[in-house]
Amino acid sequence: MSTNPIVYMHSDAGAPQLSGLAGSLTALLDAILVTGYGVGAEAKAPAGWSLEFSGLNRRAYRNDAVLGTGTYFSVDDSDTVSGGNARAAYVRAFEQMSGVGLGVNGAPTVARMANGDTWTKSRALSGASRPWWAIATSKWFYIFIDAGATGLDTAAPYFAGDINSDVQGDQYCFVVANGLLGAPHTGSTSLESTKLFHARARASDSVSDALGGYILRGVSGAPGAVPVCLTVPSTAPSPTTITSFGRLGGAYPSPVNGGLFMEELLVREGPYLHRGRMPNCYSPQHNLAFSDLEVIPAVSALSGATVVAKAHLSVGAVTATSGGQLLFDVSTGVE
């Protein structure tokens, strides 16, 4: 079980490779979440999830039930869903599961997406490797996938796991990021649709389906997943002005303190209704200040923690406003 974040990357010794073949994502998640990979000094330990159910290129993982919610994360990478293909895998969270693909109270709901959301692995139906980068603990993981092999700085971000909820004892705070909204990948050269870190929605904006992701239950606690999106504490410009977190900001280093300013990413399920915060993830208040995967040590705003900058692209074609940057705290463990 890992309470401290572990960083994983396609170029690590012994790392599994991701491609447009069935089973490549489940093999990757097996390694990151459950088994680890590599040997000796270069070995990477697993994040500490359990593998609850397994079938041919299908899995049900579960995050830590003591530190976390013990939610199940179902992945169908089998290329057997009618109309689907191996360019993307189908994903859904469940409160309870009894077998591969068999669960109750899913996020997203079956009514919203019959087979689950679709996370893109590769634009090509081939065994060509696609770069990826991930950070994970026993409660959550982020993964960035360069499905078009255009550069890891253009990778699409995904997330599954518990957020830092502001609801005391919250057992339903597991979030699954949106991908292609259940649609198969057509092989298009346009950017994969992933919206969790896309629209810088303002606190007063409404939340709708397909805007960012789904949380297992709303703040009322009633059964049924609800959509969520992200915002920042400061007033954000309209999404037509800037579309990605970490894209717009002042000079770095800041003339105020000679250092770094950043904001928590708030998870919102309605106007002014903030459920919690994304774990170990921040939006810099600077305009693309760092190179991709640059390490920034001793950040005073995080009590001296180390952060890693990760560039990403969001939704639609690559434009002047679609690329952003996130900062991940790689020092602070989960509780």
Results as ranks from 00 to 15, higher is better:
317 A>F: 12
51 L>K: 04
51 L>G: 01
241 T>H: 13
2 S>N: 13
161 G>R: 02
176 V>H: 02
275 R>V: 10
93 A>H: 09
107 A>C: 06
271 P>T: 05
141 F>D: 03
61 Y>S: 03
131 P>S: 11
330 V>Q: 06
138 S>W: 05
297 P>E: 13
8 Y>K: 03
292 D>H: 15
30 D>N: 14
195 K>L: 11
117 D>I: 01
253 P>V: 06
323 G>C: 11
103 G>K: 06
141 F>Q: 05
258 G>E: 09
34 V>W: 01
48 G>T: 09
14 G>F: 00
150 T>S: 14
178 N>Q: 10
295 V>C: 07
253 P>A: 11
177 A>C: 06
15 A>Y: 00
18 L>D: 05
228 V>T: 02
127 G>S: 15
258 G>N: 08
235 T>M: 13
64 D>I: 09
141 F>N: 04
197 F>T: 02
96 Q>W: 14
27 A>C: 12
155 A>Y: 01
244 S>R: 01
194 T>L: 03
233 P>V: 01
28 L>W: 02
143 I>L: 03
48 G>K: 02
115 N>T: 02
334 V>S: 07
46 P>S: 04
182 G>P: 00
226 V>I: 05
37 Y>V: 00
307 V>D: 04
89 A>Y: 02
41 A>D: 12
21 L>V: 14
257 N>W: 14
247 R>L: 15
250 G>W: 04
37 Y>R: 00
319 T>C: 07
228 V>L: 07
114 A>N: 13
305 A>L: 03
30 D>W: 07
198 H>K: 14
160 A>L: 10
231 T>F: 03
206 S>D: 12
302 L>H: 04
328 F>V: 02
260 L>W: 05
222 A>N: 12
253 P>Y: 10
309 A>Y: 06
111 A>F: 11
10 H>F: 07
106 G>Q: 03
153 D>L: 11
53 F>W: 09
304 G>H: 06
314 S>H: 04
232 V>W: 06
153 D>R: 11
166 D>F: 09
74 S>I: 11
226 V>H: 03
171 Q>I: 12
55 G>L: 08
10 H>N: 13
68 G>C: 09
303 S>Q: 14
